[in-house]
Amino acid sequence: MKKETKRFAILSIMIGLSLVLSYVDSLIPIVVTIPGIKLGLANIATIYVLYRLGIKEAIIVSILRVFLSALLFGTVVTLSYSIVGATLSLVIMIVFKRISSLHMITISILGAVMHNMGQIAVAMFIMSTKEIIYYLPILVITGVISGIGVGLLAILVLKYTQNIFHE
């Protein structure tokens, strides 16, 4: 298969996968009951594409995931949350991947933490209640934990798909 065709196929699969993952994410109940907490499973696909295909492709996957999942499962309100969260998270991951030699798991943690910070910022804005910032410490900590999990999963996916998607 031609290289470009293969990249295009991987990209399409990952967009589909990230949509399914963000749906699964919304189904998983989380014990800690704080608004905005999610596992961020869709980030597995984003990180995979970022490391496997590149920055441009990761941006495409992120944008399409945000808009399509809002169209399929969300509302205008959830769209504003996920746009800000996804943008911040992707920007910080791209920047730190380029300028530092940090491990993939750390990059994933940064993405998750920034995503949560974005959620808090939007919540503060939408509800014009600055006290929502009190949720920040716990959201940072849960971001670190879920970031580690997502990072580990992304590493596994990269490892086990090496042969399938061999270029």
């Binding site: 608004p35 309100v77 919540a123 509800m127 209640t129 006290e131 929502i132 009190y134």
Partner: peptide, 10 residues
């Protein structure tokens, strides 16, 4: 300054 938040009902 403690809050109870319901995002769906704003």
């Amino acid at each position: 300054n403690e809050t109870l938040v319901c995002l769906p009902n704003k």
